[in-house]
Computed example of a mutant assay.
Amino acid sequence: MKKTALLVLSIASYFSMFSQAEITENEIKDHIEFLILDKNGGRFPGEKGAKRVVKYIKKEFKTIGLKPLSKNYEQHFTAILRVDKGIDEKPEVSTCNVIGFIEGNDPKLKNEYIVLGAHYDHLGLGGPSSKSDKRGVVYHGADDNASGTAALLEIAEKLISKQDQLKRSVLFIAFGAEEQGLLGSKYFVENPLIPLSQIKLMINMDMVGRLNDKKHVYAGGAGTFTNGVDFMKNLGKSLGLNPIVHAGSVGGSDHVSFYKKNISVLGVHTGGHPQYHTPEDTLELINLEGEKLVCEYVFQTILNKASTPDNIEFINQD
């Protein structure tokens, strides 16, 4: 009887571990729901809501099993905030990037890194970057970029279940203050916690929650690494996506900071929409099934690039 109970327990434990490692719509939804809570105040740098979000991401990193690169996963920096026209004095606040990693297994290649990034901040209660004249209301940023942050957590969880396959190490960065001018990623590349020469590819996810009916997913910068364009096109099609892959078109999010340091990059997003930088960017408009598919696209990309010994060489697209 005891043996039977033990067997049942073992099987349940196995399937529990398996399900946790899979990317699920429910977990994506749960992450986004927390990130866009009114009490998080639009995740504005330096405010209580953003600090609450940092605590959440750190807890998730620890639960997943990511190792910290710095003390307590945090890389602190000072952000100079954008202000409305006509205002000279720019406030300075303290914020941070949240960083964890999975160590690769190859004695040599584990010193090379694939970086996966997404910014967690948004516009707070409106401001100079807003596309709406509404002020004093929460700019939820469900797509921008709670979707990317949720994807970061889900992909990290699945990748750690494949850790034994990874030759290269994988670095996960939730960037702060992107909306203030890519400040978190700029700070990281100017104050790297590992030598920049060891970063072989940086993949950034910014607005990945609105996959359309044609299943268009955009991948910019694919020409900055060897065979990147063909690889991203073929992989996307194999997953049932219709990828729009650009060799250049590096774009305007956190991967730009890495590209400027001659690091291969890939910027992944699902396109713009009328709710961009307005309070109406909410969970109801997120395509959870579509985001799960985009997560799989990015996961497979990293798994391939981190588990094969092929050289990843930077190719300038300017």
Rank of each mutant, 00 (worst) to 15 (best):
K51L: 13
M205L: 11
L211P: 05
L239R: 14
L303R: 07
G136N: 08
L196T: 01
I160K: 14
H119W: 07
Y187V: 07
R43W: 07
E190H: 08
E27P: 00
H269D: 03
S185F: 00
I173F: 01
V93P: 01
N316D: 09
C295H: 07
V170L: 12
K108E: 12
N105K: 12
I286Q: 02
I160F: 04
N191H: 14
E33C: 13
Y56F: 15
L159I: 08
P45A: 06
C295K: 08
P107F: 04
L201F: 01
D133H: 07
S10D: 01
P91Q: 03
E103R: 10
E89R: 08
T95P: 04
L69P: 01
L303H: 01
K292S: 03
R168W: 03
K134F: 11
K58H: 03
Y297F: 15
D88M: 09
N145S: 12
S185Y: 09
R135F: 08
D38A: 12
G272N: 13
Y276I: 14
E284C: 06
N304D: 05
G127F: 09
S264K: 06
R168H: 03
A306C: 12
Q180D: 04
K261I: 02
Y113F: 09
D38L: 04
L153H: 01
N145T: 15
H31K: 07
K134G: 00
G127C: 06
H277T: 03
L66S: 07
E92A: 10
P195N: 14
D84M: 13
I244W: 08
P45V: 05
A50L: 12
E33W: 11
D318A: 13
S132Q: 01
V245S: 12
F34G: 04
L123C: 09
S94L: 14
A156K: 02
K48F: 15
N26L: 10
A247H: 09
N304K: 13
P243V: 12
I80R: 09
L293G: 13
V250P: 00
G46R: 03
P274E: 14
G223V: 03
T226R: 08
A5T: 02
L123T: 06
G267E: 05
V98G: 03
D144K: 04
H273A: 15
E154D: 05
V268Q: 06
R168A: 11
D318F: 01
Y187G: 05
D318W: 04
G290T: 04
G184D: 00
K3W: 06
A177H: 04
F34P: 01
G272M: 14
V250E: 05
G86P: 07
P91D: 07
E157Y: 02
H76G: 00
G42K: 06
M202S: 14
Y120M: 08
